[in-house]
Design a protein around this nucleic acid. Sequence first.
DNA 1: TATATTTGACCACG
DNA 2: CGTGGTCAAATATA
Length: 322
Amino acid sequence: MDSPSPESLHAIHKSVIGKLLKGKESATELHTLFQTLPEDGAGRVSAQEHVLIISRSFAESLSLLNSGRVNGTSQIVAVNGGVGVSSGDRSSKSSDHGRKKLGVKDRRGCYRRRNASQSSISVSPTTEDGFAWRKYGQKEILNTIFPRCYFRCTHKYDQSCKANKQVQRIKEDPPLYQTTYFGHHTCQGPPMRAPQIISDSDHMTDSSCLLSFEAKPPTKQGPYFPNNHSAMMISTQELKKDETQSDASDNKSCLLQDLVTSESSKVISPYEGSSAHQDEVASSMQSCSSTPLHDGLDHMEAFSTEFADLDQDLYFNDMELF
DNA sequence: TATATTTGACCACG
DNA sequence: CGTGGTCAAATATA
């Protein structure tokens, strides 16, 4: 049949994602606005709920678009297919109650490393995203200040939802979290309201930026995310190294945050021309870092020169994969 | 009592 | 062998 050319498909995808991103940004800004309103009206609560729903709807759509691209190659099979630990499995080994069953070979850690090729990264002052998550692990990660938290969808077992996410705090004072999503929600909009998410965030300002990445299959010089950050972060890591070695770990996080900020606005730009909104997002994020960083700015210069490549790279990825 | 979180163990991967 | 992702018993919370 007359199927659209790949180019026009790319264009359509890009356009759709751009619009979704815009909508989501608006929703989050709206949400932020609500935070500033007095808490008297009951209407505010319901309005906020709507905002959450909208926000969630956008996030889900984006997630679907991301994962839909591989369609057929059941993404992230490694996680569930490989490990295959489900409730039944669990009960089968609950026979002995010892915490350490050294003799018995249980299946802890029996997993395949996640194929990072399917991920969306969101940087936000909150971890709130409207979905119900269940934390299943936390780990100290090398060269990071804060531990990384691992979440799976609450409906992993009852609805076989494969959505997972990793949340890493990247800045302390105004909290800033980098959330990496894997897989998309196949669960039905659960009857639960949003927050059941991470405990340590009471900030509801959901001014997040969603970056979506896709691995280029052939590039093999190690995993797509060699460390704990996305492709975007990879080269920022080098900058970070300087910082790390020099000293102040706090400085490090500031720098990272700054980089992230610029990333966000940069990355979104390929989707849609209008940059006014992006600036708002960027500045709203910037406002999170009240710390003026002289050192960081120096690095930003170096970073910006590198950025041309990064930007292209990212853009390229998106183009390639849509 | 049911459900969620914590945390040490386990193991694949590089 | 080090690191990161996951499991699951123990524990906490509703």
